[in-house]
Design a protein around this nucleic acid. Structure first.
Lengths: 343, 343
DNA sequence: CACCTTTGTGCTAACGTTAGCATTGCTGTG
DNA sequence: CACAGCAATGCTAACGTTAGCACAAAGGTG
């Protein structure tokens, strides 16, 4: 690799002069600057950021720590972050945890060793103590999920209200046997979504056991298939289903298609998230739309500002974006009942 | 940030001893090692890789340079790479080019400044001269697309054969007015796919003008919608459509759903790639399946080996994976003709 | 002409880590 | 007891860059 020393030797000047010429220092003559730049360009010089970091410069890398990039929520986020950060000269490091706290810890160790400038993290259910320590030493931001022992900067969506609204929609249509299929309550998002589901039921005066729930790994398509199979068995199968995870939704849709379940005839369904395929699935999937793009842009802007200014303004920050129910054809009153007021 | 010096001062020993204790050097007494590790752990010491790199250690970061992470091909690749590399202690840097050669160049400059250990790149149509220079100085690997001025290591799929097979399938069913909608021929993949399409037509003895083609930005869902609208206009609209890009496929499916086009009645369709929604779209989308996961694993293994061994074995390497046609319900003979032999 | 200022450049140290070489104190052997 | 050998540790330099200070030459001012 070419260094400033190589350029200096070739031009018979000192490394200091080369360094200053490259950083456009006012004290260097225009002629020298020109010759240095010429030589640097010819020789393919690229500054060594590791050396700059040793001199106190900060890294230009921000890490995104997420469960799985194949989840369209996360790839959307990665894209949006990348786009916003590229404009500011930052690079994006991608770390997938697979929702495994030990993998998360290993990644955080590496990120810390690499002295990344900041971290945007969707934490696992219970991050390792060392992960917490490592994050304390880094500007970081929690995304979607929120763990109390991490920093108090958080960008998320209103999980409770989203699920409440979705469930209320089904209640309004007259459903009384409604199932919820979502992630485990260990995850803050899982807990909030389940809570939203129950809120809607109790607000409607429905008994708590009106709602059947299946909680499982939120990023397992396969679990979605199994769970919906279980839910539809037996005589008192629910007439409506609300989902609390995009991957589970994908599994459910596949299974329902394969088994030829009539939607919304036999079962009303409200999905979670919005994928291209959701609009063309069966009668069109009514689903909980989330402003993921805006969320990611918000994160990017916040972090960019945080990294460019003094770290004084590190007060707690919370941004809760509302979801919105996207109405399509997959929900209808059960057994042709009237749309409302029949309980 | 805690350094070895801090640990040394606290324990009243030299930095050398601390460094050696942490790297488990045989010359250091067990007792000292224990004390150093204890202190390091308590103080939250994390080695500074920038400093190690200055001493000749190589980076543990590999960059993935792709057009857009939201494309499921690329998110699958990113996931697979990440998974394989994490096991070897490598981290993944993500750079999105948006198929813009200047953005690509900016990213490569940064990656080079950060002294990444290697690069896996899906190059833009015509990478900038400086991009080529930069890549020459880095172990790199081309993925899917292949540009002659870059290195001779390439992992791709058989674009020509995949499209030939897909088109031949339609020809066999009796279609004589077939359209191809894919990426521009400036992209090596676009050119190969188009060539495959034409190969199938000429093998079938069909005139070249039997095939209508629409070439546009391969990652624009919107362009897919517009293009299929154009294709279906007019009296001699094609009876079958083959696609050459996953994003264009998404656009086409949306548009066909919205317009209520009968598939395969009015139009037979062969998609590109395989997404969750493809199986439940209309009658099920017949599509060109590609072994993206295997491809990514191959890349990861090749690069990990390359980075761990001496760079002697840098001979040309090419891996071409075959695609496979996934038959579902979206293709049928036109106008109820017999499945074959009716031309 | 002595002095100050300006302009352009060089020298040196520092960042954190590590490898080579030097040093210290001890044990064992002749 | 002298000395070799060894175990444990310290000292120093080097990686590439940059900032502070020093320095030389030239021009301007009294």
């Amino acid at each position: 690799m070419i260094t400033t020393k190589d350029i200096a030797e070739r031009l018979g000047i000192s490394v200091s002069t080369v360094g200053r010429a490259l950083s456009d220092d006012a004290r260097i003559s225009e002629e020298t600057k020109f010759r240095v730049r010429q030589a640097a360009s010819e020789m393919g010089y690229v500054g060594n950021r590791a050396a700059r970091m040793m001199r106190g410069a900060s890294s230009n890398v921000v890490a995104l720590v997420i469960p799985d990039i194949r989840n369209s929520f996360y790839s959307t986020i990665a894209h949006e972050l990348s786009k916003n950060m590229e404009a500011e000269g930052f690079q994006l490091m991608l770390s997938e945890t697979d929702d495994d706290r030990m993998v998360e810890l290993r990644h955080l160790r590496e990120l810390s060793a690499n002295r990344v400038a900041g971290v945007i993290i969707v934490p696992t259910a219970r991050p390792h103590g060392d992960s917490v320590k490592l994050l304390r030493g880094l500007p970081h931001l929690q995304l979607l999920r929120r763990h109390p022992s991490l920093g108090s900067q958080w960008f998320g969506v209103d999980d409770h209200e989203s699920l409440r609204e979705a469930t209320a929609h089904l209640v309004t249509q007259g459903h009384t046997r409604i199932a919820y299929l979502g992630g485990p309550t260990e995850l803050p998002t899982g807990a909030e979504r389940l809570r939203g589901f129950h809120s809607a039921l109790s607000e409607a005066g429905l008994p708590d056991d009106a709602g059947r729930t299946e909680l499982g790994p939120p990023s397992s398509v396969e679990y979605g298939r199994e769970a919906v199979r279980r839910l539809l068995e037996g005589p008192d199968a629910p007439t409506a289903l609300v989902l609390g995870s995009i991957q589970l939704t994908l599994g459910v849709l596949e299974e329902l298609s394969e088994q030829g379940v009539q939607v919304p005839g036999e079962l009303s369904v409200v999905g979670f998230g919005d994928e291209p395929g959701f609009s063309w699935w069966g009668p069109g999937l009514t689903t909980i739309g989330l402003p993921i793009q805006e969320l990611a842009t918000g994160c990017a802007l916040w972090l960019m500002r945080r990294l460019k200014t003094k770290p004084e303004n590190d007060g707690p920050y919370t941004s809760v974006s509302p979801g919105s129910l996207v109405l399509r054809g997959s929900t209808a009153p059960p057994d042709g009942k009237a749309p409302s007021g029949s309980a």
